[in-house]
Amino acid sequence: MARRNLTGAVDFAYLENFAANDAGVIEEVLNLFREQAGIWSSMLDASAEGWRDAAHTLKGAARGIGANHLGELCAAAEADGPQHLADVLHALDLVLADIAAYQHEQALQSLKTPR
Results as ranks from 00 to 15, higher is better:
Ala20Asn: 13
Arg52Gly: 01
Ala54Lys: 01
Gly38Arg: 10
Asn31Tyr: 13
Ala55Phe: 00
Asn17Ala: 15
Phe18His: 15
Met43Ser: 10
Gly60Thr: 05
Gly50Pro: 04
Met43Ala: 10
Glu49Asn: 07
Ala37Gln: 02
Ile39Gln: 08
Ala23Cys: 14
Ala20Ser: 14
Leu58Ile: 04
Asp45Ala: 04
Phe18Met: 15
Trp40Lys: 01
Asp22Val: 12
Asp53Ser: 03
Ala19Gln: 12
Ser41Asp: 05
Ala23Tyr: 15
Ile26Glu: 09
Arg52Tyr: 03
Glu28Gly: 09
Leu44Val: 07
Asp22Ala: 12
Val25Cys: 14
Gly60Asp: 11
Trp51Arg: 04
Val29Leu: 12
Ala19Cys: 14
Gly60Gln: 08
Leu58Asp: 01
Asp45Val: 04
Lys59Asn: 02
Leu44Ile: 07
Ala46Leu: 02
Asp53Arg: 01
Leu32Glu: 14
Thr57Leu: 01
Trp40Val: 03
Thr57Ile: 02
Gly60Ile: 08
Val25Arg: 15
Thr57Pro: 04
Ala55Ser: 02
Ala19Arg: 12
Asn31Gln: 13
Trp51Gln: 05
Glu27Trp: 12
Glu49His: 11
Asn17Val: 13
Met43Gly: 05
Phe33Tyr: 08
Leu30Ser: 07
Ser42Val: 09
Ala46Met: 03
Gly38Cys: 11
Gly38Ser: 11
Arg52Trp: 06
Asp45Phe: 05
Val29Met: 14
Ala48Asp: 10
Asn21Lys: 13
Arg52Asn: 02
Trp40His: 03
Gln36Cys: 05
Asp53Cys: 02
Ile39Cys: 05
Ala48Leu: 08
Trp51Tyr: 07
Gly60Ala: 09
Ala55His: 04
Ala48Tyr: 11
Leu32Gln: 15
Leu58Tyr: 04
Phe18Asn: 14
His56Tyr: 02
Arg34Gly: 06
Arg34Phe: 09
Leu32Pro: 10
Leu30Val: 08
Phe33Ala: 03
Ala37Phe: 00
Ala19Ile: 12
Asn31Phe: 11
Ile39Ala: 09
Ile26Asp: 02
His56Thr: 04
Asp53Met: 04
Ser47Pro: 00
Ile26Phe: 09
Ala48Thr: 11
Gln36Tyr: 04
Gly38His: 10
Asp45Tyr: 03
Arg34Asn: 09
Glu35Val: 02
Arg34Glu: 11
Glu49Lys: 07
Ser41Met: 02
Glu27Thr: 14
Ala46His: 05
Glu28Asn: 12
Glu28Thr: 12
Ala23Glu: 14
Glu35Gly: 06
Gln36Asn: 10
Ala37Thr: 03
Glu35His: 05
Ala54Ser: 03
Asp45Pro: 05
His56Asp: 06
Trp40Ile: 05
Ala19Leu: 13
Asp53Ile: 00
Glu28Gln: 13
Phe18Asp: 15
Asp45Asn: 08
Arg52His: 06
His56Gln: 03
Glu49Cys: 08
Asp53Val: 01
Ala20Val: 13
Asp22Gly: 11
Ala46Tyr: 05
Val25Glu: 13
Met43Ile: 08
Leu44Glu: 06
Asn17Met: 15
Gly60Pro: 06
Ala37Cys: 01
Leu32Lys: 12
Glu28Leu: 10
Glu27Pro: 11
Met43His: 09
Gly60Phe: 07
Asn21Glu: 15
Glu28Asp: 12
Glu49Ser: 11
Leu32Arg: 13
Ser47Lys: 02
Gly60Tyr: 09
Asp53Asn: 00
Ala48Ser: 11
Gly60Trp: 06
Asn31Ile: 12
Leu58Arg: 01
Lys59Pro: 00
Trp51Pro: 07
Arg34Ala: 10
Leu58Pro: 00
Ala37Asp: 02
Ile39Thr: 10
Ile26Lys: 07
